[in-house]
Design a protein around this nucleic acid. Structure first.
Length: 272
DNA sequence: ATGGTGGGCGCCCCA
């Protein structure tokens, strides 16, 4: 049975419960990984998702900021919710989802810090935190978390808050000094990816020079017409598992839904 | 060069 996995920065899970219903109606993914739930664990609206068939739920939230969650139709076990950079932020959760064969699919769901406005780590602690977060992803995945071997079935999803390629932004030149597309970030994210040879399956299936975005600012007058987007949301597969991905989709239409998130879902189908 | 919008929370933080 194919396993479809969506990742979506929902920008308040309580305010946008109905949008998750719309995603379920439109594409019915087996697993939905959420970021920016902005919801303490006791207040998480699990019931409304159970009604949609997502009976297995793993959450790592806090009051006001950040927060990640995984909703699943298949049985699932939470593996860990790691605190990165010793900041107390809820920016990661990992789960094992039941799959074909004897091994589960392991999903790491991330919300990487946005990094503030000034791309100078000496002046802007938020940007320094973002860079430190990337370094910790490298050391953690290379060490205690897991050393990915050829038969592992691991995926990284989430809002990584970096648009790595020139065609992942509306204007490479104009965004080189804008946080999310500066060389220190795009090179940092590329080092994370290469550290274990993760495969960016979305760009494998929809390669450059095609422009591809997953986020459009709320501040644009007409987001669709201006189309000044960035590809901040990602799905990476461990190298031995990359062949299992049979389809990818960026659900651009979700940006036009009523009371939208500024991010749209990215969905992959895995033969697993 | 600036300010534009949106969410959470509580008179301002963050994206």
């Amino acid at each position: 049975m194919p396993l479809s996995v969506a990742t979506w920065n929902i920008n308040s899970v309580r305010l946008r419960q109905d949008l998750i219903g719309q995603l379920a109606a439109a594409r019915n993914p087996d697993v939905i990984c959420l970021q920016e739930t902005k919801c303490p664990n006791p207040e998480f609206p699990s019931k409304s998702f159970e009604k949609l068939g997502y009976r297995h739920i793993a959450i790592n939230g806090q009051k006001g900021y950040h927060g990640v969650a995984v909703l699943s139709k298949r049985p699932m076990e939470m593996v860990i919710a790691r605190e990165f950079c010793g900041m107390g932020d809820t920016r990661h959760i990992a789960v094992d989802v039941e799959a074909d064969g004897d091994r589960p699919v392991r999903i790491h769901n991330f919300y990487v810090p946005a990094g503030g406005d000034d791309p100078d780590p000496a002046k802007n602690p938020k940007f320094a935190h973002k860079l430190e977060f990337l370094e910790e992803m490298i050391t953690w995945f290379g060490g205690e978390a897991e050393t990915v071997s050829p038969d592992d079935r691991t995926i990284i999803v989430g809002d990584l808050n970096i648009a790595p390629l020139e065609d992942d932004v509306w204007s490479h030149k104009q965004l080189l000094k804008v946080v999310s597309h500066t060389p220190v970030e795009t090179e940092g994210l590329e080092r994370v990816r290469r550290s274990l040879d993760w495969v960016d399956v979305v760009r494998r299936d929809i390669p450059p020079p095609e422009k591809l975005y997953t986020w459009w600012s709320y501040r644009a007058k007409d987001w669709n017409k201006a189309d000044k987007g960035r590809r901040l949301d990602h799905v990476w597969l461990s190298p031995g598992f990359a062949g299992a991905c049979s389809h990818v989709e960026v659900l651009r239409e979700a940006r036009g839904w009523e009371k939208p998130s500024d991010h749209v879902p990215v969905i992959v189908r895995l033969e697993a």
